[in-house]
C-alpha cells in the first residue's frame, strides 16, 4: 500500500527532514511510526498525501509514484486517504455534521446520500447525538473523533493519523486507538504517528522507529525488498 524507497526530503531552508528513508506498509497492515519530536514522522505522512514531494528517492502509494501524478490525479489520490491531523483541522464555523459532510461533498457523493452516511459514521464514533453542535463545544477527545469520522466517512482504504492522541488523556487515547483497531480489523490500512510508546507497545502492532530523519528500527513485515524498478 505504501512504499518509501531511499527518500530524502529537504526543505527550501536547507533543513533535511528525511535522510534515506525506506519502508513498506502492506495493504491491510497496521503500523505505528514512532520517534522523538523532529524525527521526521510528520514529513513521512505529508509525502504520503502529497503535501510534499521527495527531494530524492520515491514514494509509492497504492502502486502509483506520487511524484508522477498529474495535477488532476492528486485529488483522486487524496480522496483515497483518510488523514487525521494532530490539530484536528476542524472548521469551527460549521457543525459536526457539516464538517464530516464536507469530506463527502469534496469527493462528489450525491447530495441525497450524504446525510445517511454521515449520521452512520458519527454513530460509530459515538457522536451522533452531538452532530448539530459546533466542534468548539466538544472536548478534545470528541473533536478527535469528529476528525476521525471525517477521515473515514468516504471509506478510504488508507488511514493515516498524525499524533491522534497527542492532546488526550490516557483513557480517551485508549478509546481512540480502539477505534483505529476496529477500522484495521475491518480491512483498512492504518499508519499512525505516535509518541505514546506505552500504548503502542500495549497494542502490539508493528512499529517503525525514527530518529533524526532516519529509520532506526524496522519490523520484519516492513522490510520488503525494494528496487527502483518497483517504483
Amino acid at each position: 500500500m505504501i512504499r518509501f524507497h531511499n527518500v530524502h526530503l529537504r526543505y527550501p531552508t536547507g533543513y533535511e527532514a528525511l535522510k534515506g528513508v525506506s519502508f513498506t506498509v502492506p495493504r491491510g497492515g497496521f503500523h505505528f511510526l514512532t520517534g522523538h519530536s523532529g524525527a521526521g514522522k510528520s514529513s513521512v505522512l505529508k509525502l504520503i498525501y502529497r503535501a510534499e514531494l521527495p527531494s530524492e528517492g520515491g514514494v509509492v502509494v497504492d502502486g502509483r509514484n506520487v511524484e508522477r501524478l498529474t495535477p488532476k490525479q492528486i485529488p483522486l489520490l487524496r480522496r483515497g486517504i483518510g488523514v487525521i491531523f494532530q490539530d484536528y483541522k476542524l472548521l469551527y464555523d460549521r457543525s459536526v455534521f457539516e464538517n464530516v459532510a464536507l469530506a463527502m461533498e469534496v469527493a462528489g457523493h450525491p447530495m441525497d446520500k450524504i446525510p445517511g452516511q454521515v449520521q452512520r459514521t458519527l454513530e460509530y464514533v459515538g457522536l451522533k447525538d452531538r452532530m448539530h453542535l459546533s466542534p468548539i463545544a466538544l472536548s478534545g477527545g470528541e473533536q478527535q473523533r469528529v476528525a476521525i469520522a471525517r477521515a473515514i466517512v468516504n471509506r478510504p482504504p488508507l488511514i493515516i493519523a498524525d499524533e491522534p492522541t497527542g492532546n488526550l488523556d490516557k483513557p480517551m487515547a485508549r478509546r481512540i486507538f480502539d477505534l483505529f483497531t476496529a477500522l484495521h480489523q475491518s480491512g483498512a490500512t492504518v499508519l499512525i504517528v505516535s509518541h505514546d510508546l506505552d500504548l503502542v507497545a500495549e497494542l502490539g502492532f508493528p512499529q517503525i522507529d525514527m530518529a533524526d530523519g532516519r529509520i532506526t528500527q524496522l519490523p520484519a513485515s516492513t522490510r520488503v525488498p525494494l528496487t527502483p524498478a518497483t517504483l
Binding site: 502509494v61 480522496r79 483515497g80 478510504p156 477500522l183 480491512g187
Partner: peptide, 8 residues
Amino acid sequence: MIRNKGSW
C-alpha cells in the same frame, strides 16, 4: 487512484 474495495 486508490482503489476502494468497499468491503472494510
